[in-house]
Structures are given as structure tokens and as C-alpha cells.
Design a protein around this nucleic acid. Structure first.
Lengths: 151, 151
DNA sequence: TGTGATTTAATCGTGTACGATTTATATCAA
DNA sequence: TTGATATAAATCGTACACGATTAAATCACA
């Protein structure tokens, strides 16, 4: 087993990129009858956990900014899943609130977690360990970007 | 620490999705002066390893199909990085060959691996372990999809 | 040897992602 | 109070991703 630096870049980025795309492809058929895309599902999961929050709050949860989230949330509003309204305290912010339809969708997703766990081929504790590693990787990568930027 | 199934889905998919996006954002400034996007860089890395292969061969390496690869490769051809030509043995296949420019680009990427490793905050051996886990995750997810499809 | 099934790319429409910029609102300092 | 700065979303243009479909070449096999 070679541990040269050259290959780490290539293989870590390949595997992360390919695994994320593969995960998307597993979710897609599970979300199809709910008329949801994978990022839209992530937004709903975040809102089921905490509702009535700003666009940037949703964004910090799933790692997206308004340039991606705004059109995504507009599509979800058009689908009747949520409402978007300016905050009265701070009119710069747009508050995202689940509709009854958006809230009810949670029930219909109850079988998804076990499907996904099965698809990963991981044990519950291995999945948790991997999640922790990926969370800390995300943090490191985001911090590196903050440190390196030319502001 | 709860190990309930409900949260695995949410947190594994969140962390994988967010980490992959974060990785993309770290690569982007490193590739900017080379006029490359992150997926284009992955294609080049695959070609540096093995050149003169079909579209689907490149696709199997990075986990994409022709619907995504064809326009991507067309842009890279327009940028003078590679050539696309029908195989004479099997005219269904399009063979991708690096140009001199595409080959020379490899030298200019030599510092990227160490930048990425630094950004991950991981040791070399931790990075390798994570790569192995993600590779096997990708395999499991892809196999699950093959098994589940309604053909 | 022909013909139906399979394989390989390409095409098309929709929905992300992202950097750069813009607009509106809020905050802070002199 | 006002002007300078900061913050929150939105907008815009480019480039992925993907399911579904199409077109052309090859294969299988009766």
C-alpha cells in the first residue's frame, strides 16, 4: 500500500465526488413519488427539525448560499411545500415556513432512512462513524477556504 | 449518543452532500488559473492515468454517463485539452485522447495534492482510510441501485 | 444471412451549484 | 443625522448532473 501524497488528492476527491453522486442516485427513486429532488428533501429535513428560519440559516445547515437556495426555495414554494416572507424585525431576511403540505410530507418519508442504511451496506455504528468523519471534513474544508480567501 | 436509524439517513446524507460541495469549493480556486472546473480536472486525472479510452470508460472511473460527459468533453475539446474521435474498430465508441496541451497541464497541478491534504486537516493515513471507506460506499450504493432497478 | 436485441453516444429538458454582481436594509461612527 | 460599511437575498451567466429518449453500430442466433 503506497501512502504517497500524489494519490491522496486524486483518490480522496474521486471517491468523495463519486460517492456523493451515487448517494443522490439512490435517493432519487425514493423521492420520485413525493415529487422531491434530493436537495429539496435536505431542505425539508432541515425545516422539520427547525421551522421559520431565514434563508441563510437553511443554507448553513446544508452548505448552500442564496444563489442556489433562492430558486430552489421558489420552486418549493410554487409546489406548495413552504412559504417565503420577509421578516418584520429585519426586512433583509426572508423567513421560510413549512406549509401543512410540507409538514405532512414527513410521514411519507419514514421508510427512507432504513432504505438508505441498507443501500450503504454499513452497520449503524459504521454509518455514524463515517458521518462524524465527513462532518469534520466539511468543517476543515470550509475553514481552509475562509483562511485562504483573498479578502 | 443516540444510534437510531432516523438520524443516520439525515446525517449521513447531509454530511456527504455538504462535504462534496465543500471539496469542490476548495479545488475551484486552485484550478482557476488553469481554466478548469473540478469535474474537468477529474477527467484529466483519469486520462493522465490511462489515455485513449472510450467515453464510457472515463465515465466508469468518475461515475458519470454520456449525458453529463458528452457536453463536458466537448467543452474540453473546444479548450484544446483533448480530441474526440470515433473508434475504427467499433464506431459506436468515441475515443478520448489527450492533446499536448492536456498532457502538459499535469505538471502545473503538482502542488494541488498537498494543498488538498492540508485543507482536509487529515493525516495521510487517515485520508487513505477515508478514501477506502468512500470507495466502498460508492460501490455499495451503485450495486444497490443495480439490484433495485425495475428492468 | 437477416433481424431483433443490445450497446454506445448524443440530445433534450429540468434542476442544481457557483462566482460575481446588484439591490435593499441595517448598523456604526463621526 | 448622515455617510460609510456590512449584511441578506436575489439575479445572472456558465457548467454540471440526471432521467428519458433517440440514433447508429454491433451482436446473437435462428
Amino acid at each position: 500500500m503506497q501512502h504517497n501524497t500524489q494519490k491522496v488528492d486524486e483518490l480522496l476527491c474521486f471517491s468523495l465526488y463519486a460517492a456523493a453522486n451515487a448517494m443522490n442516485r439512490v435517493y432519487q427513486p425514493l423521492l420520485e413519488n413525493l415529487q422531491l429532488t434530493y436537495p429539496q428533501y435536505l431542505v425539508l429535513v432541515a425545516l422539520w427539525e427547525k421551522d421559520g428560519v431565514s434563508v441563510s440559516h437553511v443554507g448553513s445547515r446544508i452548505g448552500l448560499e442564496s444563489n442556489t437556495l433562492t430558486p430552489l426555495l421558489q420552486r418549493m414554494e410554487a409546489a406548495g411545500l413552504l412559504r417565503r416572507s420577509r421578516s418584520t424585525q429585519d426586512e433583509r431576511q426572508v423567513i421560510i415556513s413549512l406549509s401543512a403540505k410540507g409538514r405532512q410530507l414527513q410521514k411519507k418519508t419514514k421508510d427512507i432512512p432504513s432504505c438508505i442504511l441498507h443501500a450503504t451496506g454499513l452497520s449503524l455504528s459504521d454509518a455514524h462513524q463515517l458521518r462524524n468523519k465527513l462532518s469534520s471534513l466539511r468543517t476543515s474544508l470550509a475553514n481552509d477556504r475562509d483562511t485562504t480567501d483573498s479578502s
